[in-house]
Amino acid sequence: MRNMKKLTDMQIDVLGEIGNIGSGNAATALSELLGHPINIDVPEVIIMDYDNVMEMLGGPEEIISAVLEELSGDLNGIMLFIQEKDFVETVLSSLMQKPIDDFSEMDEMDKSAIVEVGNILMASYMNAVGDMTGLHVDNGVPSHTVNMAGAILTVPLISVAETYDYVVLIRANFLVEDNSVSSNIFMVLDMDSLNKMLDQLGVGMD
């Protein structure tokens, strides 16, 4: 078992750059979709484990909307597109002309719009990653929930829990409307895939 907690600075830089290129492509797609300019923060590379997962997004019981896709092909892992209520409100008012005040007001059509936005964003993200690395990745079928952040973020940890008690997470933040409204894309690869991607970019583990 290789210890990925000890990524070198260069590897962290490369992963950050992958996040930058992926989220840049996704931001362009999102901007075209919504007709709003989108800003992105510098992506973060985070080691998420059992101690910090519950506090990652405003506490374990924070209610968020999330679209999940399971990556397969040359890379295996999970992508999560996570939206706070304000972001969902912005998306639904520009796409569906339907402002909402609360997640409970979302009907099936609203949910399907959010799933589609997530699907487009995550596909744009992975296309850019694929171009950069020369690896082919399938994004899988998107699945959506509105629920507690702690349970949603635990999903990537559970997917590797038999072997590892942490994941390496690339987090990109999208900002709309004077930067007051944000959403996140989390890319989590299994350890073999993370190694493969770093190898492909010339900064593999020894």
Binding site: Y50, D51, P60, A151, T154
Partner: peptide
Amino acid sequence: VGIADMKVAKREQGIVTFALGSC
């Protein structure tokens, strides 16, 4: 109680664990 964690209470008022999904 965190993830993959356990606690025993003899005096405390109770025990809580947050946001169980498939756990």
